[in-house]
Amino acid sequence: MAEKKNCDANSPKGNNCTHHSEERRTFLKQSSAMMALALTPPTVLKAADLDEKVAEKFEKVPVTLEINGVKQKLSVEPRVTVLDLLREQLNLTGTKKGCDYGQCGACTVHIDGTRVNSCLTFAVMQDGKKITTIEGLAAGEELHPMQEAFIKHDGFQCGYCTPGQIMSAVACIREGHANSEAEIREYMSGNICRCGAYPNIVNAILEVKNGGQKV
């Protein structure tokens, strides 16, 4: 298991793992048939099902995450990023994929209160942690002050970078890095807005900071 985890976890794009994984796969397919048969009523067994059962047993890891206040017990492959878990498995598509390389900030979420590029971290690394996404920022229908400020100052155009900008902006204030326009620009520079709404975003953050509301 340890070997497998290393390979998959460090090489999400599959680099250098080809040979090894193939061997492992073949081995699993051959050796686990008997055990899988023992676990499953024989009437429902088809080749594909068998494959899935094996995969479930050997390729997934249990993870507990508290996402937007809800504790979730999940079973995920070690190579699944937090970003892909949110978007592809939990239908939380508010968190955006803009590069998948940690270069754009579109995927910013809070993990235990810290802003994190969710494309750069695997779900299994966050076991037991609290994750807040853009969907969890508002209190029900009542928007978070930063969301209100983004609307008021038109801090977006296409809206694709916006969830990341807002999550980052909230953290920026909480960190104490929003004391001047220049400081905001510096500490928000990990969040690219290709539409170029930057000055409006800075104005939104300044207003929330200066308004003294609790973020």
């Binding site: 920022l137 508002a138 977006f156 969830p163």
Partner: peptide, 12 residues
């Protein structure tokens, strides 16, 4: 304000 602003800031 934008008619779709709320959708965009809430991730919807």
């Amino acid at each position: 304000n934008r008619v779709d602003g709320r959708m965009k800031v809430t991730g919807r």
